[in-house]
Amino acid sequence: MYRRSTGEKIFAVFNTIFLILLCMIFFLPVWHVAMGSISDPLKVAATSGLYIKPVGKVTLGGYRLILQNSTILRAYGNTIIYVVAATTFGLILNILAAYVMSTKGLMFGKAFALFVVFTMIFNGGLVPTFMVVNKLGMMDTRWALIIPGALSAYNIIIMRTSFSEIPREMLDAASIDGASEFKILTSIILPVSKSIIAVIILFYAVQHWNAWFNAALYLQKSRDLYPLQLTLREIVLQATENSIVADADGQDVMIYRPLIKYATIMISIIPMMVLYPFVQKYFVSGVMIGAVKG
């Protein structure tokens, strides 16, 4: 180890302070919402600025209110259905596509790769896609949030890269033994690809958990199929907490109204925050493959 000069030591101090400040900027907005959600509802709206600690007396009234609310609970349930179904469907197709793309020596292998990659560069656009989904009879059904948007060429390429690194000898040995391609995929490739599968599940699950636009586009008449993000948009951005208030009753509702938006934001991000530390290492490795190949 070599000795650091005075200038470098000073730099190290400033650098540490800078990074701590940056972390606060990343973290404080979320903290603000968390503190807002447990603040005194009568004082919170009148208090401006950042909530470093709860304003007034701590209360869980906001959470109690939204957890009793059928609109929000149904939206939460819908989101879980969409995430599980769309991720499963997308993952299966993703694995098939990646397997075909990673197989060398196919006559139409190049054409297939081009067919997949081209979807990243050009698309029919908003209205034509909307019309196809409409023609398929998916409007105002759950299918509209599960099938379209389930498969991403980007994720296929990430998985293909990982599959290509599996030693050929393993696959050749199996095909000499007469195993079918499907058998090779399920009994040789998938068992050694657990971490890339975790990455892809993570990417799809985050995408579907956070998605709102397709719901706004395809569920124009079916409010009871709304995912959480779209309900959140209505409550917070279109200021329709009245509709939430309207289908509950009692005095509580009027009192805790200012907390609804904070509490709803919190319940939408808590699952991500809880899951995140466990999946972080997969996440970073996935982004790295994607950055190199994308």
């Binding site: 940056l22 972390c23 990343f26 973290f27 979320v30 985050v206 958990w209 956070n210 998605a211 709102w212 993000q229 779209l230 959140l232 948009r233 917070v236 951005l237 934001i265 939408s268 991000i269 991500m272 925050m273 995140y276 530390p277 972080q280 996440f283 970073v284």
Partner: peptide, 13 residues
């Protein structure tokens, strides 16, 4: 870890 956190938050939030 903290710097990647906002990436997981939805656009709506």
């Amino acid at each position: 870890t903290i710097s990647y956190l906002p990436y997981f938050i939805s656009v709506v939030v």
